[in-house]
Design a protein around this nucleic acid. Structure first.
Lengths: 162, 162
DNA sequence: AACATCGTTCAATACGTACTGAACGATATG
DNA sequence: CATATCGTTCAGTACGTATTGAACGATGTT
């Protein structure tokens, strides 16, 4: 019996799919995770394909992405060539990995941009008309960036999300 | 002089646009905010239209969205029929509003689904085969949901994001 | 009152990207 | 060795949705 046969679980699959879609992570990512999360036993790519009505290619790719985020784990079943997967329930760690993956480059990119801006503002022989204004805005951006990073590394937050 | 004439600021506009796009909020939202954020004086819809090369409809809609999130503020200039806007720099509050707006329905939807699942699991005369397993997974989900909410309302987090 | 100048709306469209599925290499099986 | 069964890849497509822009009502102007 497939987990998606249970209408209740099918609702979880649908809900998870909608959630991940609005988060910009793709619909099937949430669907596959929910499917695995409510499967007592590990599932193969073909199980995902038929249970969720997705292509095998999708199943393969999304499973690898989920594995990279630590949301899903590969398990070997002896005497079986297929790959099987189970869902982890360390939601906090999962969430951190996803956010880092999505936002990491953006944050460092902002940091570089702020540096470049500072350098250029200070290098001007004669200051641009709105020099003071621009500097104050850049400063505020830096403060915000710092707050996000400190919040991110805060022990209390880590504990709460364990 | 329009702020987007400065190549440095144009980079901020582009970067902000990319960020909001990957966050699923639309590209012009970030562009408009960055444009306003680096404008010493308030800007009109036409300024946005010409400064960013977007349609007037886009400018109108995105400005209203940003206003709803508290990212942007309307200002009146006496003797002028146009609406003018400036950017706020309370990034923390902004971020909270956006997240609440995007995730709010999803979280309460999950809560309802968990309730319904609990009710149905307990109402069964004869438990389903994997009753214990399903209950444990639902329980874990509830725990996670609780952690997110407590983190959300945590005073320290609020202070850090002020 | 006629005209001009706003902001808003919403059907049509353009656009990015998530998803598909056929082709492929790799590995097991007989 | 031939065949079957895997998982992976990637060009093509389908799909959702962000964006447009013409039409409109509202409001100010002469």
């Amino acid at each position: 019996m497939s987990p998606s046969d249970d209408p209740l679980i099918r609702r979880f699959v649908e809900e998870a799919g909608n959630t991940t879609q609005t988060l910009g992570v793709g619909r099937v990512a949430g669907q596959v995770f929910a499917y695995l999360y409510f499967s007592p036993e590990p599932r193969s790519l073909d199980d995902l394909k038929e249970g969720l009505g997705i292509s095998k290619g999708s199943a393969s790719m999304v499973v690898r992405q989920l594995e990279q985020w630590g949301a899903v784990q590969r398990v070997w079943i002896k005497g079986d060539r297929k790959d099987y997967y189970t869902a982890n329930d360390y939601f906090g760690r999962m969430l951190r990995n996803v956010i880092m993956d999505v936002m990491g480059k953006r944050l460092s990119s902002l940091s570089e941009l702020l540096d470049a801006t500072d350098a250029q503002l200070n290098a001007q022989a004669k200051p641009v008309p709105n020099h003071a204004f621009l500097q104050s805005r850049v400063k505020r951006l830096r403060e915000f960036q710092g707050k996000v990073q400190s919040l991110w590394g805060n022990p209390l937050v880590k504990v709460l999300m364990k």
